[in-house]
Write a protein that binds this DNA or RNA. Sequence first.
RNA 1: GGCCUAGUGGCGAAGAGGAAACGCGGCUGUCUGCAAAACAGCUAUGCGUCGGUUCGAUUCCGACCUAGGCCU
Length: 285
Amino acid sequence: MKKILIVCGPTAIGKTALAVKLAKKFAGELISADSRQVYQGMDIVTGKDKPAGVKLHGLDLVKPDEEFSAAHFVTQTRTLINQIIKRKKLPIIVGGTGLYINSLINPPATLSVKPDWQLRKQLEPKTVKELQNQLKKLGGQRWRQMNHSDRLNPRRLIRAIEVNKFQQGQAFPSERTDLKFNTLWIGLRENKAILDERIAKRVKTRVKAGAIAEWQQLKAKYRQDLESMTGIGYRQLPDIAAWILSEQQYAVRQMTYFKKIRQIHWFELDQAGDIAKLVKAWYTK
RNA sequence: GGCCUAGUGGCGAAGAGGAAACGCGGCUGUCUGCAAAACAGCUAUGCGUCGGUUCGAUUCCGACCUAGGCCU
């Protein structure tokens, strides 16, 4: 089975640095799993780093006003993985976007249902109550599966309606068994105080590197309501304290998501040696 | 020393004699193509202190304490 290594964890924890080390050690190539670094021209604020001596795929895939989502990530990454394996290299997924990684490893059947922008536009102005009623009328199975939080979430309701409408008549493509991987999940974590400190420092570095100028340029060129413009930093600038705070809150949300993934082997920053050992044992087996 | 104003949760802030809005922050969580997104739940037995009036006061009265302002 195809082996792929995953390095995940909250923002600013040092995922890329670790992944680069591992890539050098085990002849790997990196694939970024980051929903914001796919945008061209969004470099400083999103903290793209381009390590020397190691290939890093998955950055600068689209323009800020182009569509991108977990589904795009999955298709993209599948091809990349195949190419990398053909070169006899180890694919290493690095990133903090849990949904992307999870969709790659455990692709949900509905991932193939494309967004219906016309429908979305039409549903957007509706109230939560109206969306709920519409979804219930459509059959109610999905509705019954949704929990309290999601039932009050307009985005999730609209998506559910979208999927439901698509389903009318057609069956989902059956699951592809050729897409199973032998994965090793490495998670990096740290206690909150230390991580908060790292985040603050990192943001300040980005400001010094010209984050504000980058933001102003983008602002002049693109509409503020683009999904790409909702990235942390682009919404908070020029209030740097607010930016830092948002980034710290985001780290918490990331951990909430990753905590649920049982396969992750968690390490702290000073355990690089243990990580290398674990990877070696898995990779050479 | 005198006068005035204010004193509500970590912060900001509303309120009225009869079950302490809301915002922020914090914590926990949700997750089947927008995920650095979107969403949910929890977060003051308490309204500066002590007395009084009242069936009932955080809300009315008095004293005191603290802060700010003005005056001599």
